[in-house]
Design a protein around this nucleic acid. Structure first.
Lengths: 129, 129
DNA sequence: CTTGACCTTCCAGTAACTGGAACACCTATC
DNA sequence: GATAGGTGTTCCAGTTACTGGAAGGTCAAG
């Protein structure tokens, strides 16, 4: 299977797939013409990576998760540790973004948004402290 | 005022302040010895930038907001447009992260996290479709 | 045999810094 | 005056996870 077909099946751009090979996440063999010849195992890995990335895991997390996935003697605790840590980070990000949203939302509401120069948003950004 | 003192006052690292000069957000004059000599106006700009960045505005947004702030003939509508757009992006990010959190949270809860290899997280990542 | 769609590699750019090296300067003390 | 340390300076490289583009090889169809 060539990279174009793999891209369609996994919904990952060819560039991304090549990049994943570059950094050693997959190692598809090559045909005589130099084209990557993806096996089922490569497709599975790419699908796995797509899922993990969609949940926001870093590439390094993905690398570790992939290794655990391939290690049939893994302990689920190792997987859970990675996932829990990531979950915490997500929650922290959500909280931070909610704070931003609340502040910004208040400012946007307070701004007339007309042709006059008076703007509570700018006033807030410029305030002391 | 030297960069170290400015850093303390604005809570921005010296590296960041130099970077902001590099990309033209501030243009402090220099002393005879080559040291940056920050004026009150530079401090105000840096404080403004710190606030805008803390709310997640991009540097380019900050550049535009700063220009509007300095333009006393601005229309508040221009500020509001930038802020509203950013607010939308924040809300989209929150939604995306909440989706991730919900999915991941379910998986983490389902994972025993013990020494056995069975792991619903990995199973989910590996599933078809 | 040409056309067009594929594939290849390699280089550069993205956002917003951050770390580190190599070197100048300034102040205070011995 | 020498020196030590705490500043400041510049410049280069690295970070994350790709993405765009150029230059060129390959393949199937007509």
């Amino acid at each position: 299977m060539n990279i174009g077909d793999v891209a369609k099946r996994t919904h990952l751009p060819p560039k991304t797939i090549r990049y994943y090979e570059d950094i050693g996440l997959i190692t598809p063999p090559r045909d005589a013409n130099g084209y990557r010849a993806f096996r089922e195992a490569d497709m599975h890995k790419l699908a796995f990576l797509g899922r993990a990335r969609a949940l926001g895991f870093t590439i390094e997390d993905c690398r570790n998760l992939l290794a655990l996935w391939e290690d049939t003697a893994r302990a689920s605790a190792d997987v859970k540790t990675i996932a829990q840590k990531h979950l915490l980070e997500i929650e922290e990000k959500i909280t931070a973004l909610q704070d931003m949203r609340d502040t910004l939302s208040t400012l946007v509401t307070a701004c007339a948004g007309d042709s006059r120069p008076d703007c509570p948003i700018l006033t807030d950004f410029a305030k002391e402290g």
